[in-house]
């Protein structure tokens, strides 16, 4: 599993962050469609802060511009922070710099593979039998961020999380 330089930079940013405990709380917020992959793992969660009045600000970066999961993610962030006593939460959606699959954590990639999704490595490998003999069925799969492949070895169809 490759660890991108972009992810290493994000990890350092988080570890040295003044409000790193907020990142830890938000590890409980998952992508609505990929079991166990947190918004941090996905590279959606960008920054957090709390002002003197106790107001939280969370910055997220949408994956694909039309992704319908974004609204659910915002609700889940608010519900999670509310549980920890932060009821006043402002969510900023940041478009720039644009989200990239390079921000996905190695853990996120591993969990995708375990869920039967080929992670966004540049070579497509069947997540079930690890064969490289795969064929593109459709440029877009179950969601805009994935395409649909078929394994020529085990004949299973699977989603491939596209590099972006």
């Amino acid at each position: 599993m490759t660890t991108s330089p972009e992810y290493i930079a994000r990890r350092v940013f988080r570890q040295q962050h003044k409000f790193s405990e907020l990142f830890d709380m938000l590890d409980e917020v998952y992508d609505p469609e990929i079991p166990g992959v947190s918004l941090w793992d996905l590279g959606v969660l960008q920054d957090v802060s709390v002002d003197v009045a106790g107001r939280c600000k969370v910055t997220i970066c949408p994956t694909y511009s039309g992704c319908p999961a974004l609204n659910i993610m915002q609700e889940d962030i608010k519900a999670c922070l509310d549980k920890y006593g932060h009821s006043d939460v402002d969510i900023e959606v940041s478009l720039s710099p644009a989200w990239t699959t390079d921000w996905i954590s190695p853990r996120g990639r591993q969990l995708m593979i375990e869920s039967g999704i080929a992670a966004c490595e540049h070579i497509v490998v069947c997540p079930l039998c690890q064969s490289r003999g795969v064929r593109l069925l459709s440029q877009f799969g179950s969601t805009a961020c994935k395409s649909l492949y078929k394994c020529e070895n085990c004949f299973e169809t699977f989603d491939y999380f596209k590099p972006l």
């Binding site: 949408p62 694909y64 511009s65 039309g66 992704c67 319908p68 877009f140 799969g141 969601t143 805009a144």
Partner: peptide, 11 residues
């Protein structure tokens, strides 16, 4: 899915 991307642009 393409329609959805383009709707995202419109939004």
């Amino acid at each position: 899915n393409v329609a959805l991307d383009i709707l995202g642009r419109a939004r």
